[in-house]
Design a binder for these strands. Structure first.
Lengths: 137, 137
DNA sequence: AGCTAGTTTATAATTATTCTAAAGTGAGGT
DNA sequence: ACCTCACTTTAGAATAATTATAAACTAGCT
């Protein structure tokens, strides 16, 4: 099956109509060897770089949000004012370099929590993330 | 010594000239029984609520940033597009309720990490924070 | 092929933050 | 107490990130 058909099916099973824009964005996000950390801005740049037909920024915002809702993307915690997303949706942790604003994954097995608190009543834990902020030596 | 004098000295020793605005903001932030989680918006509302003379938003931004630099405030990690600050500067962790955008402290001893990664070379760890995102049961 | 609800688009609107440059003020010296 | 001046504050403009609007487009039916 072609990549395009493959992606289209993935979208369909997520309840998302496989439009050309969504397929193109999905191809850019998910057909990668490594996980991808991005903002709407960098994703847009990436798409244009590959010589594709330009996609409206609003569509990129909508699509990224739709992919997040469908569970294909995760929002990353930062102390920044713009939103970062991650194609790695497994529970995992990050280094965050405050100077360069660069995010890198931390290997899952490199962090071990021996104790975590109970959630407040009426709530359950949706996600647990460790962020280690870095600075120059 | 009066509260005002006390705050003025704290500011002076941080290299910040104790202006009326800074003293008023500091009073609102640090003369509390509990730690305070806030955004510039909520802080501004708080100040106005107490019947004080209005402070320019730009000043609040400047002051909060200056207090952060001086080590009196910490920026909190969220998946939000606006900046949250915390008057609790000790290393500690948070619950973050994605629906209500509410932040609460997690008792330091309620989280234990038994393993953390080495920082990348050339970098050292500035801060480590665990954020537990919550959702409705 | 035609219909329709879901999608995309350019653009406007909104929100959060930073910049600017003029007016105000704390603190040291007189 | 008064001067001076570097540091602050201020209103408003500028910028940046995101969301809303409403007209045009299109995937997936029949």
């Amino acid at each position: 099956m072609s990549i395009k058909k493959n992606i289209a099916n993935k979208l369909r099973t997520s309840g998302l109509r496989p439009t050309n824009q969504r397929i193109l964005i999905a191809k850019n996000l998910f057909e990668r060897d490594n996980t991808f950390h991005f903002t709407v801005e960098t994703l847009n740049r990436e798409i244009n770089k590959n010589g594709n037909k330009k996609i409206s920024l609003a569509t990129i915002y909508n699509t990224v949000e739709a992919f997040k809702k469908a569970g294909h993307l995760k929002k990353i915690l930062t102390s920044n004012t713009k939103s970062y997303y991650d194609t790695n949706i497994r529970s995992h942790h990050h280094f965050y370099d405050d100077e360069t604003k660069e995010l890198t994954d931390i290997d899952y097995q490199k962090v071990k929590l021996s104790k975590i608190p109970n959630p407040p009543k009426g709530k359950k834990i949706k996600n647990l993330e460790v962020v280690i902020s870095l600075q120059k030596l």
